[in-house]
Design a protein around this nucleic acid. Structure first.
Lengths: 140, 140
DNA sequence: TTGCTCCTCACGTCACGTGAGGTGGC
DNA sequence: TTGCTCCTCACGTCACGTGAGGTGGC
């Protein structure tokens, strides 16, 4: 019998992740009537591996749920899958750019601070290091 | 008198952000006894601009709160500020690397899918596009 | 009276992780 | 009896955004 832990092992995820997927309806195991234990099948192993694979390609759990719904209704999820990854590629590119800009800001700040002493707050200043980076910022 | 909206304008943040900072104690305005309106001061304008600046350098609100506490107790927050940015630089580098790897996975997948047809689910397969990327994944 | 701004809850976001408190199986 | 695993809540995470429902100021 495939329990939570055994399923988790077979798909290389944590048991808590499995419980989470059950909670949100991505997996719908039957229950052992005697003790309410979840009973998974080989189909669940395949579904869980699919979840893991889809996540590694940037799909959210809500999107994966949508894919499952398509497939269960006998409709091809492929067009939607292509559409979603296209968006995610654009979104992620933007995010990587922003985090790259953040990285540059942080590294430049740390470098400039190397030549500056620590200061004691004096009512006019909270932390002169951070304040000295003023007018250099863009949105966080 | 500086109200929520006026303060928000002066520091170029949203009124909701101001309310959030009050909720978590980063700003502690007095209240107009007649109507409970928040009354901010020029010091709050400086504090809010500091928050914005610190956020743009990667500091979290919890860390900014810590910096304020140091400063209010007359202790220099600078050593902590240097320490935190060092960590954040390392964390962010890792994150950028991971998102870069995700970007590569997504782009390669989309490229390979260009030559593949959409499929209809057949019980053995949920979405062959995603499944075809199997054994290529690393952790998400 | 009409707008505009103000107020306080309180929930939603994303994908789990982490107790708390209790029970089945070898 | 001892471990180990199982169960179900329900909260915490991060920084707000978004209603809902109601009130003050020009």
């Amino acid at each position: 019998m495939i329990t939570v832990k055994r399923l988790a092992e077979r798909a290389e995820v944590t048991p808590d992740a499995v419980r989470h997927y059950v909670r949100i309806g991505l997996l719908t195991p039957e229950r052992d009537p005697r003790n309410r234990y979840k009973r998974f099948t080989d189909t669940d192993v395949r579904r869980l591996r699919f979840i893991r694979q889809a996540k590694s390609l940037g799909y959210t759990l809500a999107e994966i749920a949508e894919i499952f719904t398509h497939a269960e209704r006998g409709r091809s999820p492929c067009p939607r899958v292509r559409e979603l990854i296209g968006r995610r590629i654009a979104e992620n590119r933007k995010l990587v750019d922003e985090l790259g800009a953040l990285q540059t800001r942080m590294e430049k700040a740390l470098d400039r601070w190397k030549d500056m002493p620590d200061g004691v707050p004096d009512g006019d200043s909270i932390c002169h290091l951070i304040e000295s980076e003023g007018n250099r910022y863009s949105a966080a």
